[in-house]
């Protein structure tokens, strides 16, 4: 596992305490898990995602990530309806490890409240949180 300083936390996304990131794309919000979470989990072997059209509240579990010997739950950073899922992850779950902020994205949401994303942390705030937890 890497040191926190070695991990990447780009500023174009917002972070949840449960280690998901959310990117504001005007009409929609795209969600994945951050570099810290993928590093902690190790090699991802399976990603379970919701169905398009499902709706969730903020903080609801929307899927699971599996490594060889662990299962982790992933939570909604904002409330909304699922408008797309990353189909590529069923064939290549390793994208979550390789490109967590790009090709490793998981779901696209139509948010109930477009402003809710701003309640999440910035990259710097998130890194401070991680350091505080060390």
């Amino acid at each position: 596992m890497k040191e926190i300083e070695e991990l990447l936390f780009p500023d174009d996304v917002h972070y949840a305490e449960t280690h998901e990131w959310a990117r504001d794309e005007e009409e929609t919000v795209v969600v994945g898990i951050g570099d810290y979470a993928q590093d902690q989990l190790g090699d991802i072997v399976f990603v379970e995602l919701p169905e398009i059209g499902d709706t969730f509240e903020k903080g609801d579990q929307f899927g699971t990530l599996e490594s060889v010997k662990a299962v982790s739950e992933i939570y909604m950073p904002v409330a909304g309806k699922i408008t797309a899922i990353n189909e590529a992850l069923s064939e290549e779950p390793e994208l979550v490890n390789l490109e967590p902020y790009n090709r490793g994205w998981m779901i696209e949401i139509e948010p109930d409240d477009p402003d809710e994303i701003h309640t999440l942390m910035s990259g710097t705030e998130y890194m401070e949180m991680l350091k505080g937890a060390e």
């Binding site: 599996e66 060889v68 010997k69």
Partner: peptide, 12 residues
């Protein structure tokens, strides 16, 4: 595929 099993997923 051991993540299906009790020693990892316990009650689930």
């Amino acid at each position: 595929l051991a993540t299906r099993e009790q020693h990892i997923r316990r009650e689930k």
